[in-house]
Design a protein around this nucleic acid. Structure first.
Lengths: 199, 199
DNA sequence: CAATAAATTGAACGCTGTTCAATTATTAGT
DNA sequence: ACTAATAATTGAACAGCGTTCAATTTATTG
């Protein structure tokens, strides 16, 4: 029996979360089970339920952390250069997104493949994390929509969703590769070039 | 015991598939279980496995049918008018997509949320169905890329993925509604207008 | 040192996909 | 018509899942 003084409650929570992310990244989020986590960290399944109300809640927390990590890359200086044109910053930001998804594929897939059970709805703190994702792109677009904040918001959400769609299609590999090796980047470039030119 | 002459093998397969679609659309694809299907059609769980190699295979077939149905709406005359401008046809096509997703939400969600287990990869017949989805949009775009078939393909895939992303974001409701009631259509319009203007 | 509180456990419940020997229904051959 | 072969159907069984909870162990407090 694991002694309760081995870890504080928060340490244990962190241990569970980190172990979960490892499992997800290695074997996919479908492989994440309470018994597996417990086995790895040397506790019993019941302990997971002392730390988290349910596996769903744990998944939601992990998804929140994934969004935080993604958000961080979108705020990276590499795609927020003061001297660069909006189009160049946007392309860099799209690249950041594509790279993040590629490097954290399973974690990122889980973000969209995972569905809360019937009845349960997404908590506010999670929705806020999602909403925060649009800010960086909106910031870049602002100079292009000087006098129309509404149009700026619409454009930011349109572009963000579009890049997400391109990323999704690329990651799931459901698109025949006719474009070349880096089709994701080719598509985001085409998207951004045409969109900006059309403003 | 259900008599084997109640239905032919193909009838039974169709019965399983239709029942599955009903369950998915009513309670979500997570609610689809072999025992539930069997109970509804009056057979035992084992019979499902006489008709389909696994639940995964059944899901794949259903996903294929969903793609077929989606493909059909994209070939609808409503978004392939001979007199209309490419932009108008594209907007109509995007609308068809958005409407299809809205009216077949669970079925459509399953298309993306469902993931084949470790090792198994998507069969060719399924990949071909997915590839066929791009043809209608490519057809519309052709007149805009008279002398560059390659650029046309890239644009078609870019736009398709973008519209999908917009649809996904709208359906999953993970985007704060700041645009208005029909944000999906507002976004696809913005996307297409800007994109076409930028060509 | 005793009493209280908290953490940990592991068996149990009902669910899942899946397998398979046994049973039943149908067809083919004589 | 009767038998033999074939095919369909069943339902128990297995391993795994999320989850619950009484019992046990550990730590803290009075």
């Amino acid at each position: 029996m694991a002694r309760r003084s081995d870890h504080t409650r928060d340490e244990l929570r962190g241990l569970v979360i980190n172990t979960s992310i490892d499992i997800i990244q290695t074997d996919g989020f479908q492989a994440l089970t309470a018994r597996k986590i417990a086995g790895i960290i040397g506790y019993s399944p019941g302990t997971i339920y002392n730390l988290f109300p349910s596996m769903d809640a744990l998944c939601l927390i992990i998804n929140g952390m994934t969004i935080d990590a993604l958000n961080e890359t979108l705020n990276d200086p590499a795609c927020n250069k003061v001297g660069a044109s909006p189009a160049d910053n946007m392309k860099a930001m799209a690249r950041q997104y594509l790279d993040f998804a590629a490097q954290n594929k399973e974690r990122w897939m889980m973000l969209f493949a995972y569905k809360l059970p019937e009845g349960e709805d997404v908590p506010v703190w999670f929705q806020e994390k999602v909403a925060a994702l649009f800010a960086p792109l909106e910031r870049i677009l602002t100079p292009l929509y000087k006098n129309d904040a509404k149009a700026c918001k619409l454009a930011a959400r349109t572009l963000w969703a579009s890049v997400h769609g391109i990323c999704f299609v690329e990651q799931t590999g459901k698109m025949p590769i006719v474009i070349g090796s880096s089709s994701g980047e080719a598509m985001t470039s085409t998207l951004i070039d045409n969109f900006v030119a059309g403003i």
